[in-house]
């Protein structure tokens, strides 16, 4: 019962945040809307007993939105609202059409697959204190190679980004201390 109420409240806040992201004229408001959406999703994860996923969601995305915030202030300027000129012809009509199709598909899938608001959780899923172990065991056991390969990939990406930014004009410039 309480899960259902929480779901509706959090679904409403995350939708409100999502709408703010695209509807707000001020880019900082958009960033805050994104934060609200991500935070609501994190609380939904907690309700579903996925504590680790919720914590990671907040830690990773809070930092990411913070960086976005900084870029907005630095690149766009403090008081400037976004220009509303659309570059694609018929953009709005296209978006409305796509939205209707997506909603229709979602409703068809939901009704076709016997969807219920309160799924009967299996009894084993009620243990709230095992999420880290449950994630860590497959990650560092069965999928260790894939995990390490991803880590290597990210390191290469970071090194590449630094190399692109640093060695843009031939030799590296002396950085003033």
């Amino acid at each position: 019962m309480i899960e259902t109420i929480l779901f509706f409240v959090l679904a409403a806040t995350s939708l409100a945040g999502a709408i703010t992201v695209i509807a707000a004229r001020n880019p900082v408001h958009s960033a805050m809307g994104l934060l609200g959406t991500l935070f609501s999703l994190a609380v939904i994860y907690v309700v579903n007993l996925a504590h680790l996923v919720a914590a990671v969601q907040v830690i990773v995305y809070a930092g990411a939105v913070m960086t976005l915030f900084l870029f907005v202030i630095m690149l766009i300027g403090v008081d400037k609202a976004e220009e509303r000129d659309e570059t694609l012809p018929y953009q709005r009509q296209l978006v409305i059409g796509l939205a209707v199709i997506t909603c229709g598909l979602a409703i068809a899938l939901a009704t076709g697959s016997g969807f219920r608001w309160t799924p009967a959780a299996p009894a084993a899923a009620q243990a709230p204190n095992g999420t880290i172990e449950n994630v860590a065991e497959p990650l560092f056991g069965e999928w260790l190679l894939a995990f390490e390969a991803t880590a290597l990939l990210l390191t290469i990406a970071a090194a590449g980004a630094i190399a692109l930014a640093y060695f843009r004009r031939g030799a590296p410039e002396e950085v003033a201390e």
Binding site: H51, L52, A55, I59, G63
Partner: peptide, 25 residues
């Protein structure tokens, strides 16, 4: 007493800075 206690602490300390940034902006 959360299973993810330390991660929760990190999450909260990363949320705290939003107050400063939003206040400033």
């Amino acid at each position: 007493d959360l299973n993810i206690g330390l991660l929760f602490v990190l999450a909260m300390s990363s949320m705290a800075v939003y107050a400063v940034v939003l206040a400033g902006w």
